[in-house]
Design a protein around this nucleic acid. Sequence first.
DNA 1: CGGTGCACGC
DNA 2: GACGTACGTGCACCGG
Length: 879
Amino acid sequence: MTKKLVLIDGNSIAYRAFFALPLLNNDKGVHTNAVYGFTTMLLKILEEESPSHMLVAFDAGKTTFRHKTYEEYKGGRQKTPPELSEQFPLLHELLDAFHISHYQLEQYEADDIIGTLARQAEKEDWEVKVISGDRDLLQLVSNHITVALTKKGITNVENYTPSFMKEKMDIIPEQIIDLKALMGDSSDNIPGVPGVGEKTAVKLLNQFENLDNVYANLDEVSGKKLKEKLENNKEEAYMSRDLVTINIESPIEIGIEDVIYKGYETPSVTHVFRDFGFNSLLERVQSDEERSEEAVEALPAFDVKIVEEVTEDMLAETSALVVEMLGENYHYANIEGIGLVNDNGAYFIPTEMAFQSSTFIKWAEDESKKKWVFDAKKTFVLMQRQGIHMKGIEFDLLIASYLINPAENYHDIPSISHRLEKKGVAFDEDIYGKGAKVKVPEQAILADHVGRKTNMLYGLKEQAEEHLRENSQWELYHELEMPLSIILGVMEHTGVSLDVERLENMGEELQKRLADIEEEVYELAGESFNLNSPKQLGPILFEKLELPVVKKTKTGYSTSADVLEQLRDQHAIIPKILLYRQLGKLQSTYIEGLLKVVDQESHKIHTRFNQALTQTGRLSSTDPNLQNIPIRLEEGRKIRQAFIPSQEGWRIFSSDYSQIELRVLAHISNDTKLIQAFNNGEDIHTQTAMDVFHVEKDDVTDMMRRQAKAVNFGIVYGISDFGLSQSLGITRREAKKFIERYFESYPGVKAYMDDVVQDAKQKGYVTTLMNRRRYLPEITSRNFNRRSFAERTAMNTPIQGTAADIIKKAMIDLYAALEDEKLEARMLLQVHDELIMEAPEHELDTLKELVARVMEETVSLEVPLEVDYAYGNTWYDAK
DNA sequence: CGGTGCACGC
DNA sequence: GACGTACGTGCACCGG
């Protein structure tokens, strides 16, 4: 078997990883992003290449033999940031754990070590793979040596073989040094021939093959200027060539046979991963079984009593409660058992036992018996499904954790306890398995795990509450999110009625139309293919039909709607594809999708609102997502005709805040002009156009209003000049100008934007009206993109988040008002700035007045809040 | 089973 | 000048 040598340019990959990833800290406060990125790359290489020999080469010190030739070599280069330097020792530690050789040599660079070994291996007919981000290494490419250059991110590479180089760069590997000699390399401060760039250099090499021939035949070089430049910089060119030439005879003390790689041993690798805090990588080096066994074995002893009957002595004044189920959808999942922990002990109550016990049910419904839970809404719904009206929920760890830091991806009990370094509970995955392998374990194991989670929950309450108070988030937690959680639970459990028959009819109709359009498309294309596959559609449009390529994606041609829109008039196939896409979306996502999740018996849909997910405080909706039901295009809007009241004689009632985000902006920026704009009662986009373009109302053209609207949209969603240019189809420069003009018109808004960014830089986070918090660590990033994104987020989150706060409070107020007024009307859905309800016909008059008043008065801002409402027989008609 | 491209809402 | 650009969810495809 041929041997395979993998050579990694350690510095290059570490650099790449460092700049590609945010500055991660491990729990010891040491930066680990470069090591982390390097590790992901390493794991990928090991998997894909299965090397028999391997070495990671590093640059040694500041000076190299090249500096003797040219003092300014690599001059002007930014100093290695200390946050990166400190990671190199960790990198060495990591490689040792993997039993991978690493090497550096005084006065030489990693390139030279790689070159020397690569050529040695080549002679022995080994296969060689070099991994780096440095294009200089391409000079090594040969039939035996492939160079993988990082493309984007860290693990994304492009493999350079001689034929690939010819195709992509139009040169052969041996010409790389001559190429660099001519064009230079600003990053290494290599001069080359001034004024000669890549294009000219390639042209010259195509004509003359190499540098020597260029100079030997200077007369034949076309262009007087170019000739002069070459003539005057001959010395520089040759020096540049020397500098970029890799030394393939470096005096290294190791040979290819020394860098044998026999694979790593899991224990040493898992040890460093743990040490560095790379928990997410553990599963890549351990089998699921290994990891789960280890996790379970590491747990301290814990005793949980499996009860045979619920008795009073188990039910203290205050208890942690976990109603355990597998899967996600608590509207349908089975309950596997119940964990109960309080000062009297830790108990596991088998499902049947609990729900047949009047003692347990009485306790659950007793408001004065306090319950601490994880996910109050889920717990509430699970109980509700058993006919139990749970009361007395006093603490919800999920919501607390989310409010403390919404950026955490995992808010489950084991994850939280891990973060707080409290051992004592395994991850669900380690107990139940994952994916298709999920199953309920035997009762003793189940009881132990549920008991441990419940116990952890019991122990975490105090710390979480303290944290909330420190953050001034107690009110947000206690008066807003906690009550809302139960209201959302009621809404979800109530569900929305669906006119199944109507939806099925629409589906049949649509199916016919789709089949017809599909046929027409194949006719126009001259062949049939999978129209749902962008990968197959691309070549048809841009190769066979030779339509102009507007945009490319990383995997091929872009066929997105905005691209097709630009091609609309160029071929009859385009409008048909667009229509097919539009209707196909309706069919698959909305018609088939909704029919798949509707309750077969009640014909109701029970979505789940995720209250602990978005970074801004908005809700999200899943299974199904009822927050993105079509409205913009009439065709899609008809889907709403299938959403109907649950009872005869009832109506769907919909109310929404008008321009809530811009009103919030007016309030928090206290901008006089913007406040005036709202008090003026004029359409806000028209008003913005008047202010930005300095024209009277009658002189606002459709174009002006459209642009003003896009700018307002941009302000609300925190998009960039690029984003605005995309949405208006204008250049970035023009978009930037619009934004500037907007800020000139509303100086208070400008001042707010500046302040909030400053404030975020200083504090590290931004807040909303009700003290919702979002941390923005990247606001001090040296990476322009990351920093800009964080800045826009700083400006946008208080706006969007405050709007979210307001509608949440309105929901609480409205829920109470409906109860007070003893109305049957009930909330069904929330769509960010809109509430959808159902109500008996006779309540509509009361409701109109009540809903608008409650929503408008839930908070008092510097500008009035305005609510529009409508009602009808279906959601469609409530417009 | 996870990544990608696309499309829907706010 | 780089780099990739509001937030979500869900579908189909496709390659491993």
